[in-house]
Amino acid sequence: MGKTETPGELVPGTLDMLILKALATGPLHGYGVAEWLHDRSRDVLRVEEGALYPALHRLEMRGLLAAEWGASENNRRAKFYRLTAAGHKHLASEAERWARLSSAIGFVMAGA
């Protein structure tokens, strides 16, 4: 495949957190989550579908997300995910950890 510049690759280990963040504002279907991330990152981040759906299912199994079937904006049957209480809590702690980590990395890189 070679080096990819755009779309940007995810920082490893952040996908779960990003999905939770995407759902923090309200329920979305899988495609919606991908689009939201793509838009919000100003077209930098693109999630591979092959990674997105296993992650969604995993989070659902762990009780951080709940899923139900509903109608999409173009009136098709779609599976919508939303955050559970545990999911909210998990997102908060992950966000805090991420903030600490990224500012630390920022310091280090600025110091160089």
């Binding site: 279907h29 899988g30 495609y31 991908a34 759906y53 999409s72 098709r76 049957r77 779609a78 599976k79």
Partner: peptide
């Protein structure tokens, strides 16, 4: 259900 979900995704992205 998995099938449905992925087909939906494909349809959206094709559109």
């Amino acid at each position: 259900e998995m099938d449905d979900e992925l087909q939906f995704h494909l349809a959206m992205s094709r559109q």
